[in-house]
């Protein structure tokens, strides 16, 4: 569903790689967690997946489409919610949702049904006619999530999705992620909340200083680490 092959990225200083030869694959029906310390390269990797940054080398395919050869085709396969969703402040919530539905060409009946459903779940029905500038951080996050779910993407990509969400919204999001995968689609998300990653992810990749240092199921990671401890302990050992 999502495949990264030998992806590398450098910014200004060519000798320092923000992402260094990263490869992994997210399978259909899988929740894939992406964990690592601050500055490890999580967001850069995600930005390359969602076509906000170009890798210096390597190949990314989303649902079989190369995101460098057919950028537009690849964009239709996923939706993305960044860690701090900067949205158009002067636009009303409902106008933003209509915009998202239009650009993904979601049929009328489906957009209405999905928007009603997710507005209900995230409890922002009453605020949806307000300008986004009046929303709190959490509400913006919720609106961005609703906008991302409108077209029922093949791959749902989230950068630190739990940050800013209240406990109920966090719980609902996890449920949505599971439901999404149950229908054969995939979820790829980065997080610092290792407890969440351990509980809901089918597989996890750990990135440190731009390099993937571990990929696998929790059982596989435990086995490789030779420890039965929590992901948190293993993570701390691996990233020290």
């Amino acid at each position: 569903m999502l495949k990264l092959e030998h992806i590398s990225k450098t910014y200004g200083n060519k000798n320092e790689k923000a992402v260094d030869d990263v490869s992994f694959e997210v399978h259909p029906g899988e929740i894939f967690g992406f964990v690592g310390p601050n500055g490890a390269g999580k967001t850069t990797t995600i930005k390359m997946i969602v076509s906000l940054l170009a890798p210096n080398s390597g190949k990314i395919t989303i649902n079989g489409i190369d995101n460098q050869k057919d950028i537009l085709g690849a964009k239709k396969q996923f939706s993305y919610v960044p860690d701090t969703p900067e949205l158009f402040e002067k636009i009303k919530g409902i106008e933003y949702l209509k915009f998202m539905a239009d650009v993904f060409q979601v049929p009328i009946a489906e957009r209405r049904e999905r928007i009603e459903k997710y507005l209900d779940i995230f409890e922002i029905k009453n605020a949806v006619n307000d300008p986004i500038g009046s929303f709190s951080h959490g509400m913006k996050q919720k609106l961005a999530l609703v906008g991302a779910l409108i077209h029922d993407p093949q791959v749902f990509i989230l950068d630190e999705p739990m940050v800013g969400l209240d406990p109920k919204a966090s719980f609902e999001l996890k449920k949505i992620m599971r439901d999404h995968c149950a229908r054969g689609r995939s979820v790829f998300f980065s997080t610092h909340v290792l407890d969440v990653a351990e509980k809901i992810c089918d597989r996890i990749a750990i990135i440190k200083k731009g390099k993937i240092i571990e990929v696998g199921t929790m059982a596989e990671i435990r086995e490789k680490a030779g420890s039965q401890e929590s992901l948190e302990n293993i993570f701390l050992e691996l990233t020290e």
Binding site: I94, E95, L97, K98, A101, D102, V103, Q105, V106, P107, I108, R111, R112, I115, E116, L119, K125, V128, N129
Partner: peptide, 13 residues
């Protein structure tokens, strides 16, 4: 809300 979501528009629109 349904009314505000309006008709399906072209991407350029």
């Amino acid at each position: 809300r349904s009314k505000a979501l309006g008709k399906k528009s072209h991407r350029a629109m």
